[in-house]
Design a protein around this nucleic acid. Sequence first.
DNA 1: CAAACAAATGAATTAACATTCACTTCTACA
DNA 2: TGTAGAAGTGAATGTTAATTCATTTGTTTG
Lengths: 225, 225
Amino acid sequence: MAYRETELTRAKKTLTRERLLKAARDLVAQGGFAAATAAAVAEKSGVAAGTIYRHFPNKSELVAEVFRYATEHEVANVLAASEPLTSNDSCTQRLQRALVCFAERALRGPQLAYALIAEPVDPRVEQERLKYRLAYAEIFEELIRDGIVSGEFVAQQASVSAAALVGLLSEALIGPLFPGQTLTTDNTSAVAARAAITESEQQQLIQQLSALCLRALGVNAHTHA
Amino acid sequence: MAYRETELTRAKKTLTRERLLKAARDLVAQGGFAAATAAAVAEKSGVAAGTIYRHFPNKSELVAEVFRYATEHEVANVLAASEPLTSNDSCTQRLQRALVCFAERALRGPQLAYALIAEPVDPRVEQERLKYRLAYAEIFEELIRDGIVSGEFVAQQASVSAAALVGLLSEALIGPLFPGQTLTTDNTSAVAARAAITESEQQQLIQQLSALCLRALGVNAHTHA
DNA sequence: CAAACAAATGAATTAACATTCACTTCTACA
DNA sequence: TGTAGAAGTGAATGTTAATTCATTTGTTTG
């Protein structure tokens, strides 16, 4: 008699799980959360719909995990960009790098950015979104605190300013662009709309936003050219 | 033979329509769009569910109208606040009044603010939201342009800055607060959470945001104390 | 009143999904 | 090879609304 979980067994199971996650991720990146129905995920993974429930208690959990994964990825990038490069790296510069990183990533993957920032999702996933926003806000918050201490930024309540920056960037980058599209099932058009913005226009937009943010924090002209 | 539409007839019909709209509005203000199901609206209006479809082609249309109504109301207030009071009223002051108006209204009616700004809604209603955001952005945009011309604000692309301000305010005011609540059906808690902020804390928050926005626009210290 | 038509009703239907579960297919081990 | 137990299947079921429509009720006018 018997059966014992073994390397191979476990590996195989994990593989299926990974495949489900990957399929879901791809669907979200292409068509937003709306496109990631249980049926679609199963189909894309090459398994039956029921299989999803061998690996996740419910669809929300799967989607939440997708959200988490994408978030970590995104946040890690921005965090890295905000890290000081040299011992005398200014907060202004660090913040600027973080902003540019955030903006460039959003503009490069607009469908994902829209999904993470603004697409309507079910409440269980909305929770993840809250954490996501908070994660960004925390990066900014620390930077702002540092900058206040160093005298680069004007005195202010860092937590408020940080949240404000997140909103500022989100709205300016994706808010006004997508909304209509996701409904049409034809999400391609959304990406197309974004693609219509030229590279140089993007750079200009990023420049604008960067300037706006730095001014908002009261960057001291003396400290920084 | 016959039957002809008459004053009374038409009035009665309009009344029912109004009643439906009012019921929907109240439900949204109390519990967000999630609370405004067809059944709930009908019940609250004292009519049968089917009646809704005698007055609106579908539920989205009803909800969109609710959205529009609320929007007009809100936007009109902010617009009024932004109007110059005297012939030498500065853009800085006008903007500040607009910001304060926006913020105070949001803080006073958080459930409605959340519904209008952030609550997940179906795509047809999301369209209205787009217009709503745009309406605010336009108010800001014009003010910013004026301010640039008058030399109060630094040169910048007004449309970008305007959208950014909308996002900044939205996120700082309601973004971080609600998200979790709407799911619990127990939306009361959301309002309670907001109520937990004292009046003076609110004033401080508004002050913060106002300062942030003005700095972002590069208010010229010379022009304004 | 009766004919003509509108408005209102609310139970039944539809729609779009997620989710279940009886059953089949795999694996591991003695 | 037999069998215990996991993994996978996918048709059937459940869920949560919106939406329909045959029927009833209400108005108007000749």
